[in-house]
Design a protein around this nucleic acid. Structure first.
Lengths: 196, 196
DNA sequence: CGCCCTATGTATAAAAT
DNA sequence: TATTTTATACATAGGGC
C-alpha cells in the first residue's frame, strides 16, 4: 500500500520501524473502530511496542468488559484443574449464552421480542450473580481456613515457647501440630486460580 | 476499498452486516499480525460480534501476557491515585440511584430520556466494575499476607521444635517470632469487612 | 514524533457461486 | 455461510517538514 511492496518481516531500520509502527497502529485502531460501528460489535486492541510502550483502544464497549468477555469465554481452559468441577456446578450461564446466541442468529435480531431479550438479560444477570457470589464464597472459605491454620500455628508456637521457657525436659509433643499442615498446604493456591 | 464508498455507520442489512463483519475481522487480524511482525510488537485483538460470538487473536505474544500487561499498566494508574479518591470518583452511585428513582417516580417513566437512562446505566456499571476489581484485589492481598505469615509461623515452629529436639538450654530466642505477629494480627478482619 | 504529500499495493463492496 | 471475482476506495511506503 505504499510506494513499494513490503515483505512481512521485521523492519531492520529502527526509525522506519518506529514510523511504520505508528502509522499502522493508527490504521489498525481506525479499522477496529469502523468494524465496531459498521457491524455493531465490540473490538478491543492492545498493542505493546518493542520498547514496551502500551497502546490500546476499545470500540463498542469498554475495555474491561471486552476483556471480561474474553476471560469468561476462556474459562474452559480452567477445566484442566480439578476445581473445574466446582465451577461447572455453578455455570448454567454457558447454556444460557448458547440459547441467546442461537436465538439471535436464527432469527432476525429485530424480530426478537424485547420481552424475550429482557428475560434473557435477567437470566444472564442472575447467572453472573450466582457466579460472583460463589467466587466470593470460595475466597471466604480459603481465607477462613488460612486464618484457622494461622491460629493453630500461633498456639503451637506459644506452647513450644512456653515449654522452652519452663525448660521442659520432655519434647514428646513438640511436633504435634506440624503434621496437621501437611496435605492441606496446597489447597489455597489451587483455589486461588478462581480469582482470575 | 470496494465497488463503492461505505459510510461508517451501522449496516442495516443483517446479512451484509455479517459478511462485512467476517471480512473486516479477518482483515483486522491480518493487519495485527503484520504489525506485530514488521515492528516486533505484541498485538491482541478481541472482537465480540453483535450476536455475542467471540473472536480473538494474539500476535507476538500470547493473549494472557498481553492482557496482563494491559492490566498491570492500568493498575499502576489506579495506585497513583488515592484509592478512596478513585472510588469516590466512580461512585456517585448512591446519588445516581436516588436520581433514577426520583426521575422514575416524579415523571412518567416514558418521559425519562433513553439517553439519560443509558448514561446512568453506564455509570452504575462502571462503578460496579471498579468496586468488584478492588474487592478482588484486596482479597488477593489479604490472602497473600496470610500465606506469608503462615510460612513464617511454620518456620518458627520448626525452629522451636528443633531447638527442643536438641534439648536446648538457652531459650533466649524462644519468642523471637511471636512479637512479630502482634499488631498485624487484626489487619485481616478489618479488611474482610470490605468484601461484603 | 506527527503530519503532509503522492504513487502504488491492498483491502474490500458487490455480485456470483 | 465461506469463497472467489472484479472494480474501486483506502492505507500506507517513502520522502520532506
Amino acid at each position: 500500500m505504499g510506494r513499494r511492496k513490503v515483505e512481512i518481516k521485521r523492519i531492520e531500520n529502527k526509525s522506519s520501524r518506529q514510523v511504520t509502527f505508528s502509522k499502522r497502529r493508527k490504521g489498525l485502531i481506525e479499522k477496529a473502530r469502523q468494524l465496531s460501528i459498521l457491524c455493531e460489535s465490540s473490538i478491543a486492541v492492545v498493542a505493546v511496542s518493542g520498547s514496551g510502550k502500551l497502546y490500546d483502544s476499545a470500540s463498542g464497549d469498554n475495555m474491561s468488559k471486552i476483556i471480561d468477555r474474553y476471560e469468561i469465554h476462556h474459562a474452559d481452559e480452567l477445566k484442566a484443574l480439578d476445581l473445574a468441577e466446582k465451577i461447572r456446578n455453578y455455570l448454567p450461564h454457558k447454556e444460557l449464552l448458547e440459547i441467546v446466541q442461537s436465538k439471535l442468529e436464527e432469527s432476525n435480531v429485530d424480530n426478537v421480542s424485547v420481552d424475550s431479550l429482557i428475560s434473557m438479560e435477567e437470566q444472564l444477570e442472575t447467572a453472573l450473580s450466582v457466579i460472583r457470589a460463589k467466587k466470593t464464597e470460595l475466597m471466604m472459605e480459603d481465607m477462613k481456613s488460612l486464618q484457622e491454620r494461622e491460629k493453630l500455628l500461633i498456639e503451637e508456637n506459644q506452647i513450644l515457647a512456653s515449654q522452652m521457657g519452663k525448660k521442659t525436659f520432655l519434647v514428646i509433643e513438640g511436633d504435634r501440630g506440624m503434621s496437621r499442615e501437611n496435605g492441606s498446604g496446597n489447597k489455597v493456591p489451587e483455589t486461588l486460580s478462581l480469582l482470575k
